[in-house]
Simulated assay, not measured.
Amino acid sequence: MSSRLSLRLSRLLNMVPYLLAHPGISAAEAADDLGVTTKQLMSDLNQLWMCGLPGYGPGDLIDLSFSEESIEVVFPAGMERPLRLTSTEATALLVALRSIVEMPGMVDPTAAHRAIAKIESAISGTDRPAPTQRVPVEAPAVATVRAALADEHALRLVYYSASRDEVSERIVDPIRVVLVDNNSYLQAWCRQAEGVRLFRFDRIEEATELDEPAQAPSDAAADDTAFDLFSDDTDLPLARLRLRSDYAWVLDQYPMERIESAADGSIEAGMRYASADWMARLLLGFGTGVSVVGPPELVDAVRDRADAALRAYAAAGLAGAESA
């Protein structure tokens, strides 16, 4: 069974209990809760309408009364309760919950730990509460972002941009929380940049929920260009770097683009940067593993910082300063 069909089957099997618990819910609200489009939900309801117990007579099929305004379950055909998790499914769910609970902004940590405790209790087959675990304290800025998303309100962020090495303040219209390369981000429409941007949670220094609705363009959520964290901004200067062969790993850790490889195994690469001062500090941290080819102003910035460091070492009387 394909993953898509498996996901749909799981959704269909749990949809009847969900709808019984939310009588009269609108299609839009149900679709939002179930993580599908309204069109997909209506298709699922039509599929359910043709399902039921063996015999498949009119009295055996699931009976629904539904429109986009209201959904009612008339006859559940024995599907009043969701399916029980198998031990494998429960274990997989626990692993997933424990993973995302450590990611800021992904879930409410208190609710996640309650869910973990209930699943562990169900797996053990006892009603005894699980041992009390320390629930991570959620940073105030993270809690504010999650609240603004739930309220569909705009946010004022104080944000540290690592690539520009600066802190800025901006107004954003939050769209959703996403996970990219093991880091959690707020995807939002940035009014200053007039585009969709990703804001890494651990770099949001302050967040203030504004008393105004979020006003992201209707097509902003479909804009996946923001997920390319290493997109090439041609407005920024390009550093030309030479990486020693044993420093090829740097290409995987930083937004660099390979330009050419030399016979000795070294690699020439390019990397955009906004601040020469920040870039110089980054490059000096690699020691002799990464050298600067250009542009000249960046070469000068790296040389000046290296000379200043050597003078500081010499002034401190540290051995090896002269030979360095």
Results as ranks from 00 to 15, higher is better:
125 G>P: 05
111 A>I: 12
179 L>T: 10
134 R>T: 13
69 E>D: 15
126 T>F: 09
98 R>W: 15
157 L>M: 03
69 E>N: 14
79 M>D: 00
95 V>I: 15
191 R>V: 07
189 W>I: 00
198 L>W: 00
155 L>I: 08
138 E>V: 08
117 A>F: 01
173 D>V: 02
90 A>W: 11
180 V>A: 01
158 V>H: 08
86 T>V: 12
201 F>M: 10
119 I>G: 10
123 I>N: 09
135 V>R: 05
117 A>C: 05
80 E>T: 05
186 L>S: 03
121 S>E: 00
89 E>L: 12
94 L>F: 13
175 I>Q: 00
111 A>C: 11
202 D>K: 05
140 P>Y: 08
176 R>N: 11
194 E>N: 05
171 I>W: 06
124 S>G: 06
194 E>S: 08
120 E>W: 07
78 G>T: 04
128 R>Y: 10
139 A>L: 13
110 T>A: 15
91 T>Q: 14
110 T>V: 13
89 E>K: 05
152 E>C: 09
145 V>I: 06
185 Y>P: 00
170 R>I: 03
185 Y>M: 03
198 L>K: 01
147 A>C: 14
94 L>K: 06
113 H>P: 07
93 L>D: 03
179 L>I: 06
133 Q>K: 11
169 E>V: 03
85 L>N: 04
197 R>W: 06
69 E>W: 15
84 R>C: 12
102 E>C: 15
134 R>K: 07
148 A>V: 10
103 M>G: 10
87 S>Q: 15
91 T>L: 15
154 A>C: 14
155 L>P: 05
121 S>V: 00
159 Y>E: 02
182 N>C: 01
162 A>M: 13
194 E>Q: 02
83 L>M: 13
70 S>V: 12
113 H>Y: 13
200 R>P: 03
187 Q>M: 07
104 P>C: 04
167 V>F: 04
76 P>K: 03
74 V>P: 11
166 E>F: 10
108 D>G: 09
73 V>G: 07
127 D>K: 12
155 L>G: 04
197 R>M: 06
187 Q>C: 08
143 A>S: 08
73 V>W: 00
116 I>S: 02
129 P>V: 02
101 V>Y: 02
130 A>T: 06
118 K>S: 10
149 L>M: 10
158 V>G: 13
108 D>Y: 04
200 R>C: 03
156 R>K: 15
119 I>L: 06
87 S>P: 10
